[in-house]
Design a protein around this nucleic acid. Structure first.
Length: 571
RNA sequence: GGGCCUGUAGCUCAAUUGGUUAGAGCAGAGCGCUCAUAACGCUUUGGUUGGGGGUUCGAGUCCCUCCGGGCCUACCA
């Protein structure tokens, strides 16, 4: 038994996330957390909403709410959706928590004391109309390169040229359209991560078996151009962790807050503290996960994220932890994902293109989505969601291979033996072969799950389901029943146990369906089948069960067509 | 511009890291079964591994080049 700390990249508070966001971090993290728990490990699975930053302030203003109210509301919405998808966080925190404020300021003070924070005076665009400094991308204007009129201050989307906001012709605020923009001098704190470049480089080198995607992005940032750049970690905003606080090693930072990408990863730690608070536990309870000098020495820490988050997790956050000079637990493995596209293009919030978490749950239960998303996780390259593919996978894998197996076994038993595990008969060569096959495939499944090879795990799980259908076809208890009812009884006894076996194995992928399978069997023995032969004897003869409702309904062609039209974003 | 990833059967993906005849699932074809959500099982068609060149006893895998798709490039988070 090991102790495993798992974090999923924090979903931003600004609105409901789409399926691409879900499959890029929270869902695979949940799969791994569920599997680790099923294997008896002690797991701390942490996620939270990332609530600070300009987009949150603007979204709140648009909604006519103050930021705190807006965030509280959206946090609840996201928490409810997470529950709908069966995400089994030990805690789903908020980066705006008091815990995070204290920890963020703690790290900032430590970094300051270590000489790793520098005050830099720079020029930023200020909008009097909006009453705020504008991040580059919130300034629009005409591109000096190609003449595109809606170029953004960071880059022109038309000609892809990188821009500085002051390059724009006729610049205006993307928020209000105001043109009375001015350039103001402002002072900010910079994290001098360039001083830690060699340390970070060696640390990345010392990691074994990280996905190429993870290391290549880290290496790029470490070695591109002049190497790792220092990074501003404060912003001129109201909403966030105040950069000026008691004990701060600097002055004059009133009215400024830490940049989200400084405080968001720290929330991983803070959320664990929030977990302790929520469960009436003491400080030691969360520190044993995070401080190697207070019990975290034997913790294995795994992070899940989309590729866009890799630089922050391979460089900025480690720089924060190392720079603090304190023995904080560093990540052991970073599992990163490519993007999920929607039917030939990108998911688009503004165009209403693609399926968002709330809409998905409105159509079908979470397990349907979990199965498709996980079995098609964008591990090696970007993946694509199409309704045809979704329909085919759900109908074939879930309804036909697994769901129908449960139906045929339970219904056959009910009609011939009643809703009780039948007694009599004994196992022979056929059953021995099945168990031998299970041993082989189960090992492969476990190996892939431990390696976080998600698609391969899904394929292996499906192969395990198929073995059940093959066995049943071969054993043909409906024939055996006519000549040798005892043999049929033994076959069905094994088959009913097969359902429990599958419920346990499938639980990380489709927890809700697994729970229904177990409920139908009147069983709550979720112990992992260390040995298939033993596991297939869990339900004894005479044990009562019920025939469950259809486990997975099929998606009809009409439904598929209607949904494809509904989410195309053209209407 | 620079960097990285990627291109394998009609579709979605594998291929033990250079090693026999490139494998699965879906779709297609044929057969079987009748317990089951018209489900399941068996058999089977289908590939000049994007094109070209090279290294090697041997290349899907390594090198060069061309073509296509995608991502990142530090102030979106």
């Amino acid at each position: 038994m090991a102790r495993i700390l798992i974090t999923s990249a924090l979903p931003y508070i600004n609105g409901i996330k789409h399926l691409g966001n879900l499959v890029g971090s929270q869902l695979p993290a949940d799969l791994y957390a569920r599997y680790a728990r099923a294997r008896g490990h002690e797991v701390m699975f942490i996620c939270a909403t990332d609530e600070h930053g300009t987009p949150a302030e603007i979204a709140a203003a648009k909604a006519g709410q103050n930021v705190a109210e807006y965030c509280a509301e959206l946090h609840q919405v996201q928490a409810d959706l997470a529950r709908g998808f069966g995400l089994s966080f030990n805690h789903f925190g908020r980066s705006s928590s008091a815990r995070n404020r204290a920890l963020t300021q703690h790290f900032a003070a430590r970094l300051g004391a270590a000489g790793l924070i520098e005050e830099v005076s720079e020029k930023q665009v200020y909008s009097p109309t909006d009453g705020r400094f504008l991040p580059d991308r919130y300034i629009e204007g005409t591109c000096p390169n190609c003449g595109y009129e809606r170029a953004r201050g960071d880059q022109c989307e038309e000609c892809t040229k990188q821009l500085d906001p002051t390059d724009l012709i006729d610049p205006r605020s993307a928020i209000s359209g105001a043109t009375d923009l001015e350039v103001r001098e402002t002072r900010h704190l910079y994290l001098r991560q360039s001083k830690l470049r060699d340390t970070l480089d060696q640390w990345v080198d010392s990691q074994k078996g990280w996905p190429v995607l993870t290391t290549s992005i880290a290496k790029k940032w470490l070695h591109d151009g002049d190497g790792l750049q220092d990074r501003g970690i404060t912003r001129d905003l109201d909403w966030g962790v105040p950069a000026q606080f008691e004990g701060a090693p600097w002055q004059g930072m009133e009215g400024k807050v830490f940049y989200v990408w400084f405080d968001a990863p720290i929330e991983y730690i803070a959320a664990t503290a929030e977990w302790a608070d929520a469960h009436g536990k003491d400080e030691a309870a969360w520190r044993r996960w995070w401080r190697t000098d207070e019990g975290a020495g034997d913790v294995r820490y795994v992070q899940f994220m989309g590729k866009d988050n890799v630089p922050f997790h391979t460089l900025s956050f480690p720089a924060t932890l190392i720079g603090s000079g304190e023995p904080w637990k560093m990540v052991d493995y970073i599992k990163s994902f490519n993007y999920l596209n929607y039917d030939g293009g990108q998911f688009s919030t503004s165009l209403g293109r693609g399926v968002f978490m709330d809409q998905a749950l409105g159509i079908l239960p979470g397990d349907y989505w979990r199965w498709w998303l996980l079995s098609h996780a964008p591990e090696n390259s970007d993946a694509e969601f199409t309704w045809e593919n979704f329909q085919a996978s759900v109908n074939k894998d879930l309804a036909d291979v697994l769901g129908n197996l449960v139906s045929r076994v339970t219904k056959f038993c009910r009609s011939k033996f009643g809703e009780v595990v039948p007694e009599g008969g004994s196992f022979g060569a056929r059953e021995d072969q099945l168990i031998a096959d299970f041993r082989t495939r189960l090992q492969a499944y476990e190996r892939h799950m431990e390696a976080m090879e998600i698609r391969k795990s899904a394929a292996e799980l499906r192969a395990l389901w198929v073995l059940g259908n093959e066995y049943l076809q071969d054993a043909a208890p409906w024939s055996a029943f006519k000549t040798d009812p005892d043999m049929a009884a033994a076959q069905i006894r094994l088959s009913l146990n097969l359902i429990r076996f599958y419920a346990v194995l499938s639980q990380p992928f489709i927890p809700e369906a697994s729970a229904r399978m177990m409920a139908a069997l009147n069983c709550d023995d979720w112990s992992w089948p260390e040995d298939p032969a033993t596991a297939l004897g869990t339900l004894p003869a005479g044990h009562a069960f019920e025939v469950p409702d259809v486990l997975f309904a099929k998606i009809t062609d009409d439904q598929r067509a209607a949904w494809a039209a509904q989410f195309s974003g053209t209407g």
